[in-house]
Design a protein around this nucleic acid. Sequence first.
RNA 1: UGGGGCAUCGUCCAAUGGCAGGACGCCAGUCUCUGACACUGUCAAUCUAGGUUCGAAUCCUAGUGCCCCAACCA
Length: 793
Amino acid sequence: MIGRDLASGKYPSVVTRFPPEPNGYLHLGHTFASFLDFQTALQYGGRYHLRLDDTNPEGERVEYAQAILDDLAWLGWRWDEQTLFYASDNFGTYYDYAVKLIELGKAYVDSVSGDEMARLRGSATQAGRPSPYRERSVAQNLELLARMRAGEFPDGAHVLRAKIDLSSANMKLRDPVLYRIRRAHHYRQGDTWCIYPLYDFQHPLQDALEGVTHSMCSLEFIDNRAIYDWLMETLAFSPRPHQYEFGRRSLEYTIVSKRKLRRLVEEGHVAGWDDPRMPTLRAVRRLGVTPEAILKFAASIGVSRTNRTVDLAVYENAVRDDLSPRSPRVMAVTDPVEVILRGPDGAGLTPQTLTLPYWPHDLVQASPDGLMALPSGVRVSAELAGRPVTLSGRLYIEREDVALNPPKGFRRLTLGGAVRLRGAGVIRADEIEVDEAGDGRVVRVLATLLADPETGRSAPGEQLRAAGVIHWVDAGTALSAEFRLYDRLFSVPNPDGAQPDELPVDDGEAGPEGTGQTVSSDFLRFLNPHSLTVTQGYVEASVAHDPPDTRYQFERQGYFWRDPVDSRPEALIFNRIITLRDAWGKAPRAEAVRLRSKDQTKSRKPDAPTFSPEQTAEVARLRALGVTEADAAVLARDRVLLDFFRSGFPGDSVGSHAGQIAAWTVGDLAPALRSGDSKVRSSDLGALASLQSAGQISNRMAREVLAEAVVSGEAPADIVERRGLKMLSDTGALDSLIGRVLAANPDKLAAYRAGKLGLMGFFTGQVMQLSQGQADPQAVATLLRAKLDNPVE
RNA sequence: UGGGGCAUCGUCCAAUGGCAGGACGCCAGUCUCUGACACUGUCAAUCUAGGUUCGAAUCCUAGUGCCCCAACCA
């Protein structure tokens, strides 16, 4: 679409803009919109603007504006004085245009109350009525507007409205309000203004002022486009921007409603706007997600004109994909159980230091230069990319890695069973101590190291194979740490949905209506009680020397980093950014999900269309002419089509090709006829039909010609003549074409003979293309089938 | 109800009237000192009913479903 505009030379280059209002923090939903705006500009070698649409003083704050800039910069977007705009900086300019609009007689000051205006606006089925003030003189309007600006009137006493169309079916066009009086402190302009422009006036204007070419917004603004276009035309901007709409994208298990997010914060369901469970950019940032992951996610969702909810898995995939290659692997135990370890010879174990690699084999192999990064960022040869880890007679392993009564398929530590300690040899559990008095939890494991990792010396007679591999940390050297295990905030995919009792609510505390109404609490019922689990455990000592913003993969657990706010060198706190995929943990609950009946949509016969007596008679007349039942029914009910059709058939005289002409009228020509864009004369259709029935042109050609005629007005038969269209039905020529096609696609031929009959269409298409649309499709089909089914060697 | 928008695998996106394809997920398998990663394979869709056409996801008609508008918010 944009490519077309550029190609047509409509604009020299693309300019887009992302226009957030600084009345809250940016969230994942904004990310998609900003990505679309910015990335589009980049892709077409254009320019993007960041604009703060701060035209409503209520609720807008500097800190929000700063946070927006900050978050966007974090994502990697850049701007300068030329490409950063504040709408409020142009209040003066907007005002001048308002004056101009009045002078053009296209705007007026209205002085009825809000309620009265709503009443006068009418309803969907009822046209609006003019306000008694609609016909004020230009001079009067000008004076009133000036006095509004000067602060002579109280809030709400007057508004400036555009004079468009009070009876428009589009409610937006019923004289929209352009300016209102509102005494509120503007975070940027202070108290300079007491009148503020509204979106429908300000936004198009600002787009034009900035030289924006493609103004993209979400679908709900589609009705506003009419105002947009009206303004651009009335004010005669050229070249002018155009508005395009796209469907919103929401994410499963999250909400983005500002009001609801505020409730979460204010009622303490989360710790703040940057609580890592929130969908705000600040929150995902604190969680530890990288900007690259967010961008990758935004890029992976498609754009369309439908509002959609994206599978959480897509987001998670983007995050993991981004983290994996950048996160060194280390070990941490989040829920520790002590293990006392004996050496292979049964004696105590003397502490030893192992060197364990930061990176798994596949990542090392994927390295183009064979070098791997240390957490510090320094790249060294793969063998050196490791860290020292102590192994001694006392260590910690994960509680869920030990079981006295293991479930089926358990590949971890059981009594008498053996597992491999990651990077440190195989151990066997000789004894598992449980808390008999308490809840029966495992408190300690006595185990034997079956083979010394350094000497390779194994215990005599031991041939136990390890059931699996588990992670561990050395008790003597590990650092204690707090782990914040985050999970999705809501337990259902669509916490916003299924809330029939929700009332429309005003966003601002000081709103004129809606005050006193509260946000439905339903979404709170879906809060996931396990969205945050805090545990005390241990992390291997090596992390102490790493940069604080290092993202790690704690092996077998997930990706973590230090909480940027609360973590201290002497009191480490790690956030779990995301878990690893877990086929084992997921298995039990997987089956509970999938099962949805396919045919909920009962196919119901549409009601038969009803006809008036006249229409019934018309159908009969048309049928007599040779028009099919279906076409006759459509024609009889559609005045425009019927008139067109009839004009080619004076009286009821039977035209020889009535059936065909009716078919074209109802099928190919209908949309153009209805919109009045067709230049075809129905009297010309007969000649075309003759050509077709005579076999000179195919139906396909006829319709092509028709499409051209709609635009040009040239008689269809003349087009056929001029372009020399003639159906090619000579068997010899067709045979040779078919031969060429088959020879060029031996693989398809084989596939067809192997049973992929759908390829018939492919072959036909190829032949048609080769013949430039001139081949007789029926003849081709016959010949092709013969050739395909009876291979001649 | 008046106007507007939309409808393709479970999810998201493709397909000048001519092979319904990709990604994520799922399932199965291979590999594995991470139940990860990687790799292989399978399953899986054109809202419904008619019509036009040699051929329809695409064009036509009727219907169904979902969303938006009827703010002095954006």
